[in-house]
Design a protein around this nucleic acid. Structure first.
Lengths: 152, 152
DNA sequence: TGATTTAGTTGGTGTCACCAAGTATATGAT
DNA sequence: ATCATATACTTGGTGACACCAACTAAATCA
């Protein structure tokens, strides 16, 4: 539950502290993403989209799966991205039903900048933490990643 | 956000891994929040709002500060929450300009359920990780708050 | 008192996410 | 080979959310 720093009364199991920490951390990261995105006049979703397309050219359906969005949501998302010159729709050579989505050259450049800026923002967030704790975070995310699957 | 060597990063060395981990983790948490919220027909923002109001009765401005939202966004947020019987607007006895926002009894009950469900969801996420890594996560989040302060 | 700041609302715009319904293409069963 | 069904994507409609600019009302201070 997104609460403020302290106080987590109930809490199931015996891990309210961890739960709070996770939620807080998550919102802090989202805030960094939101800020970086907004500097470039993008939404966090568009930012995420660029991240996904940096090394892939997936179908609409594949994008919907990764983002856990409805297909129609992806249609709109790609419409807007296309209108802004960030992506191009391409037909699939093997299946006339599918549409593949590809980053434009300009968007590739932009994506690189965004990665840089997000890194800077998150580094700032992590700077006060110990190296050991950061390593633990990486392990934790890797474990989680194995269970849940690729997210962004 | 997939990684890429972020060259110019000032302080930390092998940054991209940690950055990736953080972002992945953040989206995984948001996904849990989104699901829990949607089961109760709420948005993540409303969920967050309930979390904040659980132990406070802040002014509109204070809510805007904590959530880092525009005041007008908070107006709309509270409008919708009020329409759904989750909160009540109360005038301040000391300053006729300010509006205090309070959870209804029903919303208090709901908030407790939500905390429960989020805890379950996040516990599931963390289950495969070691106790030591979870402890590191808590430390990390705590450090982060000391530096950045509440609000995220 | 009169000017300025602060609190909150309203109106307008754009993004985003959903659902239901529709088209087109592929696949499977008979 | 054909017909039913499944899959890929789009369209239209709705609502939430977030922003900005402009506005009212109440405090503050000069």
């Amino acid at each position: 539950m997104p609460s403020e720093p302290s106080e987590t009364t109930s809490g199931v199991g015996e891990t309210p502290l961890v739960v709070d920490a996770l939620v807080q951390l998550s919102f802090a990261v989202q805030l960094v993403l939101t800020r970086v995105a907004s500097v470039h006049d993008l939404s966090v979703t568009q930012l995420r989209l660029l991240g996904i397309l940096r090394d892939r050219t997936p179908s609409m359906a594949a994008i919907a799966d990764v983002l856990e969005l409805d297909r129609s949501s992806v249609s709109g998302l790609i419409d807007r991205a296309e209108r802004r010159g960030l992506v191009v729709r391409r037909g699939s050579p093997t299946d006339a039903r599918v549409t593949l989505v590809e980053l434009t050259a300009a968007a590739h450049t932009l994506a690189a900048e965004l990665v840089e800026e997000v890194s800077l923002g998150l580094d700032a967030l992590l700077r006060p933490s110990s190296e050991a704790d950061r390593a633990a975070l990486v392990r934790l995310a890797a474990t989680l990643f194995a269970a849940v699957g690729p997210g962004a």
